[in-house]
Amino acid sequence: MNENNDIILRTVDLTKKYDNRAVVDSLNIEIKKGEIFGLLGPNGAGKSTTMNMICNIVKPDFGTIEFMGEDFRKNRKKLSRHLGYIPQHLAIHGSLKAWENVELFTSLYGIKGDELAKRIDESLAYVGLSERRNDYAKKFSGGMKRRLNIACAIGHHPDLLIFDEPTVGIDPQSRNFILEKIKESNKNGATVIYTSHYMEEVEAICTRIAIMDNGRIIAIGTSEELKKLVVDDTEKITLEEVFLTLTGKKLRDQ
């Protein structure tokens, strides 16, 4: 279906309406293999709905999602194991131990036995929780829970990792650790889609950034390219100023 082997994910006219209002409006984006793609937008811009459609949580009203060259919705069973989703909320069980949480979510992709045990060790080591593997998740700090949240999504070695605001409400050390791990995953071959309200984070790790508003992409490019849309001298402007210039300063209520 996809003629370009460099594209891992493509949406074509992706649309979702709620109460006759298009939350995502004919969205066309292409994510290249090996990039860290940042998706920015004010509240209600349609970022989460877009992520949810890509992840099979919400069904689109119109349009297609091509993943690894195939129609994702038609080949969901085969392709879902190549996708890892790290939600903004802490989707873990507090009454399970760290390793049991990773076991539960990794096993959903058909991994079992010794291989599963190996992946659990690997995932916990990756997020620095090996020492705490036998502790209940409810006893973890906010930063540790965030890291466990990530460990639960990487055990099946996905090719595309979707991070939905993974650094909300955590200390700078944990945030720095998570950002380093995202870059490490990318170096190891994973493509990353990353959403955040922290502009400096996006600027620091993303190779390409899209700004979304009212369900559409209003600007896309590297950080430098986006800045040049507003001023010629990119030294004089921050990504946040670009964002506010393009999306306006009016408060957004969801």
Binding site: N52, C55, N56, I57, R76, K77, S80, L83, Y85, P87, H89, L90, A91, I92, H93, G94, S95, F105, L108, Y109, C152, A153
Partner: peptide
């Protein structure tokens, strides 16, 4: 406990992503 936790922390979304 299980159902409330699944709902509160939207764990069922993770199950949907895995195509359960």
């Amino acid at each position: 406990g299980l159902f409330s936790n699944e709902r509160k922390h939207r764990i069922d979304e993770r199950l949907l992503v895995s195509n359960l």
